[in-house]
Amino acid sequence: MADDQKQLQSLSDAYQKFQTDLQAAVTARQRLESQQQENIGVQKEFTLLPPPSQIYKLVGPVLLRQERAEAALAVESRLVFIDREIKRLETQIRDTQAESEEVKMQVYGLQTRMRGE
């Protein structure tokens, strides 16, 4: 009985941890999503921009003049990076969900057994 209690405790602790991890991953995923949207917006803006327009980049407190190709490349590579991060987080979220589901099932099983005793 005491063993069961202990096991239940450790299982629910594990479940709690999975939930926290999941929450963190989901938040990170959301942040990436908004960054992706912003970058897509900038990319679109670059394509709409008439050629002679000067592009500046804010670095700390100063605006630096930047070449159009360079700026477009920077945004492009950022998008690639964000895309990769989103994929990575999504697998992580899926894995954590599966694991936490498993632990949940174990908790249910244990609880039913304890009630049966």
């Binding site: 960054q35 912003e38 970058n39 917006g41 900038v42 803006e45 921009l49 008439p50 327009s53 000067q54 592009i55 500046y56 980049k57 804010l58 670095v59 605006l63 930047q66 700026a71 945004v75 950022r78």
Partner: peptide, 21 residues
């Protein structure tokens, strides 16, 4: 005018283009 188009990039635009943006 200098328009902030996001992620730290600013571009020069004519006022009508800025308003269009």
């Amino acid at each position: 005018v200098l328009v902030d188009i996001g992620t730290g990039f600013y571009v020069e635009k004519t006022p009508p283009a800025a308003r269009e943006f």
